[in-house]
Computed example of a mutant assay.
Amino acid sequence: MDIPVKASLSISFSNQREADEKLSAINELNLEKIPDGVALLAEPLTEKIDIASFLDFENISYLSCSGDNADDGSVLDFDWVLDLRRQCILHDIPFYFTSTGANFRMRGRDYHIGEKFRESQAAKADVHYFPVSRAFNPPVFQTTVAPTSSVIHDTDTKINEAPSSKNTNTSCVQESLNFEDSNPTDENFESEHTIPVVTSEAENISIPGINYEIEIDPEDRYIDELFNRISHSKFRSSFHLREQERSYCLSHSEETIKQHAMDFVSKKLAPAEPENDGKQTPMKGHPVFIAQHATACCCRGCLHKWHHVPEHRPLTESEQQYIVKILLSWIRNDMRNSSTEDS
């Protein structure tokens, strides 16, 4: 899969013991020697691990995790993946689930995943996380391409439930692995511990099977994807500007409405513990209020659920700008659609 983040050093681990041992020296790293940051690779992940105490290191580029590709390898439990994702969200660190591995467990059921389906099934989980705080400052992407595997895929490979499972899998993989309800340079340094690193001739990490030759994911695409997700919510998609709000937009400049949005966001959403959180946004009276409900920017709980912005901490300036841009984009779209319907 594609990982849109650059790194100079990688630290890999599979279990809690390895994570504790290898990450214990992370704060001793010389930041000048790892200008593009550190990639944390939980690959293959063989048990639930807690690395929250290490994630305060300011130069972590991202964390990725995957299962064991050996046919008789360890089972990857999806709950472990979601727990690592939760830790990354709380620390504003990009998270990527790259492969299920050969043996995958979800909701207590075990599956054997054919090699050609492992990345696609991980992608279907849709649990990648890219912090809003970085959306306005996209990373510089690597252009080196990792070496391709020489393994020949068996075109007849199928995804079957592991024999050890107590349940019988009779449905196709798309139905049985239903993730819809789940959302939810080589630089040497001296320390007491030796941390293995992945190196490449381009002085950037190169993870086998991951292509770094990808596009920058700009903020506009980020917002488009959000609107697409929200369109599937019956509640969110039910909001539209009424005559009163449309008239307000026509009689006021966009700059005025933008200033109102900035004020509402800074006063009602930005504090770590907003007053009356969950009920601070009226359902009518201003186009920005309607846009907030339509885009799930109405309270910190909705921001956390839909935008992955952690609760109980102040919003950053970039996050506030991001929210305002979403609100104005939605208002423009709704005004445009209303005009089309009227004509």
Rank of each mutant, 00 (worst) to 15 (best):
D56E: 01
H128A: 13
M262P: 01
S120I: 10
E311S: 11
T256F: 06
A291K: 01
D224I: 00
Q87P: 02
S343V: 05
D220M: 02
D50P: 01
F57W: 08
S206L: 10
T170F: 04
R236G: 07
T100S: 03
I331S: 04
D2C: 14
N15A: 07
G67H: 01
D224R: 11
R17A: 05
F141Q: 11
C172F: 11
L23V: 09
S338V: 00
S329G: 00
D156A: 12
Q244H: 05
P4Q: 10
T143L: 11
S266T: 09
S171L: 13
F189K: 08
A272W: 02
Y129N: 05
T144W: 09
D110I: 09
Q244T: 14
T256C: 08
E219M: 00
N178Q: 02
Q292H: 03
N167Q: 06
D342K: 14
I205E: 06
A7H: 03
Q16P: 07
R229H: 08
Y111H: 08
E115F: 04
P196T: 06
P131N: 08
D2K: 15
A52V: 05
A39L: 13
E201N: 03
A123Q: 15
A146K: 07
L29F: 07
L82H: 00
N228D: 00
V145K: 13
V197L: 13
N69L: 11
R134H: 13
S53W: 07
L82E: 10
N69G: 00
D186H: 12
S266C: 11
V324Q: 02
E161Y: 09
R336M: 06
T168F: 09
T98R: 15
I207Y: 04
K279H: 15
Y62A: 06
S14C: 14
N160M: 07
Y248I: 13
E203N: 14
H312K: 05
H312E: 10
F239T: 05
I113A: 01
N69A: 14
S10E: 03
I223S: 02
C65Y: 04
S74I: 05
N160F: 02
C172H: 10
R313A: 06
Y111W: 07
S253Q: 08
V324H: 03
E180H: 00
R221I: 11
T157S: 15
T316M: 10
C298A: 15
S8V: 05
A25W: 01
Q292F: 00
T143Q: 14
G73M: 04
A294M: 10
P184T: 10
L63H: 09
P274Q: 01
K124F: 01
V309T: 05
I216S: 13
C299P: 04
I11C: 05
R85M: 03
A52G: 08
K166D: 12
